[in-house]
Design a protein around this nucleic acid. Structure first.
Length: 387
DNA sequence: TCTGGGGTCCTAGGACCC
DNA sequence: TCTGGGGTCCTAGGACCC
């Protein structure tokens, strides 16, 4: 099997860069995209703002402390989605095997694409800038793990090619946090064990990692530290859930602000329903999410007999979930989620009405001994839960 | 005056079944 | 009274990612 050639393409400061296309006069100024108000956070900052320490996910108020002259622009997802389609289409003109990783990044399999690697990387950047006016950073490597790390090494407008013998000199010195899948928690635990760099991780005993992090995560940590990753490019996937949630302008009291909460709740249910209908999905598991004023988050869900995309049915189930949560604090967030999705078209047809004389019993009485001996062989036994 | 919104995957316990 | 073993489904929470 030939060694693979995988690219990770990451658009530079995507939301901010799209905004600056229509506001070029702001190009040299610090710009942040996101809500400026009370509970707003920065979704993206341009590189000028980053020099002041402004970062994604930072509360807007903190960003303004660091950079009082920072210009805040509201998010415009429709516009970003438009440019997302454009840059992905530009990539598809060169390489058809594309894995979508969200609005601003993709993996691309270049293994079967003709051309020298660096030239291909430059061609991808060229097509993208022609189609959108935007720059990106690209990593090309034998697998997704290394391609992703690579795309981050020379931002913005970078092109980094990594081969197997680059792992020791270029990957091992990096902090473990740079591994996609090692977040703040795992990173802190590793640091506490004296493991700061990816090289430290690679030199650590694999069995000890399994002992600390469990068999799956422990083994995976050991593998990725050595640059090993066999995950394929996944070009098609089905959604698992759809949801809507909102953080209130101010914390709401479950009783005193009942009317307002009910209105928001109804709206969230309607929005999820509309979203499912537009995409032609139905779901069997309905859930809610609450966040209290102390930031504690709880979820409840329930599985219903028949999948649905109907706002009233979703709301009915969601209300039942809501009743299972003791509301003894103010709320800052409410969310509604539908999961266990299936295609609406694939809905099993309503069972036909019984022919005259046919039993109406769901499970007609049968000879007990017979039923028992048959039972083991039947793969589709009725599921009584969730009724 | 802290901390958005929309996702995925994993784990773990209990119910239930054979 | 001394209590297996394997499987699936459901539920809740958490880590992580963009």
């Amino acid at each position: 099997m030939p060694e693979r050639r995988i690219a990770h393409i990451d658009m530079d400061a995507f939301y901010a860069s799209v905004e600056l296309l229509r506001r070029p006069e702001l190009r040299e100024l610090p710009v942040a995209i996101g809500g400026r108000g009370g509970r707003g956070v920065v979704t993206t900052a341009n590189y000028v703002a980053r020099r002041y320490g402004v970062r994604s996910a930072m509360p807007a108020r903190k960003a303004l402390e660091l950079c009082p002259q920072c210009i805040f622009l509201p998010v415009d997802f429709d516009e970003y989605r438009k440019f997302s389609r454009l840059f992905k289409a530009a990539i598809a003109t060169l390489a058809p095997q594309i894995e979508d990783r969200g609005i601003d990044e993709v993996y691309v399999d270049l293994t079967e694409v003709a051309g020298e690697t660096a030239a291909l990387g430059r061609a991808l950047k060229q097509r993208i800038v022609e189609a959108t006016g935007l720059t990106c950073s690209i990593g090309i490597a034998p697998n997704k793990l290394l391609a992703k790390i690579g795309s981050d090494l020379e931002k913005p407008d970078g092109l980094t090619i990594l081969r197997a013998d680059d792992i020791e000199p270029r990957i091992w010195p990096l902090p473990v946090r740079r591994i996609n899948g090692v977040g703040p928690k795992a990173s802190a635990r590793l640091n506490g064990m004296g493991i700061a760099s990816i090289g430290d991780l690679a030199r650590h005993d694999a069995a000890a990692l399994v002992g600390r992090f469990g068999p799956n995560y422990g083994r995976w940590l050991h593998e990725v530290a050595h640059g090993r990753d066999e995950r394929p490019i996944v070009t098609e996937s089905e959604p698992r859930s759809r949801s809507r949630e909102t953080t209130f302008e101010r914390d709401l009291h479950p009783l005193r602000d009942r009317a307002e909460l009910r209105e928001i709740f109804t709206r969230l249910c309607a929005q999820v329903a509309q979203d499912l209908q537009r995409r032609r999905y139905v779901g069997r598991t309905i859930g809610i999410k609450l966040r209290f004023d102390d930031f504690r988050t709880v979820t409840r869900d329930m599985t219903i007999a028949q999948p649905t995309a109907d706002a009233a049915e979703i709301q009915k189930a969601a209300r039942a979930c809501l009743k299972r949560v003791p509301l003894e604090r103010k709320l800052r967030l409410l969310g509604v989620r539908v999961s266990s999705l299936s295609a609406a078209d694939a809905l099993p047809a309503r069972p036909p009405p019984p022919a005259p004389g046919e039993s109406l019993e769901l499970f007609p009485a049968v000879d007990q001994a017979h039923a028992k001996s048959e039972g083991r062989l039947q793969s589709a036994s009725p599921n009584h839960r969730g009724h």
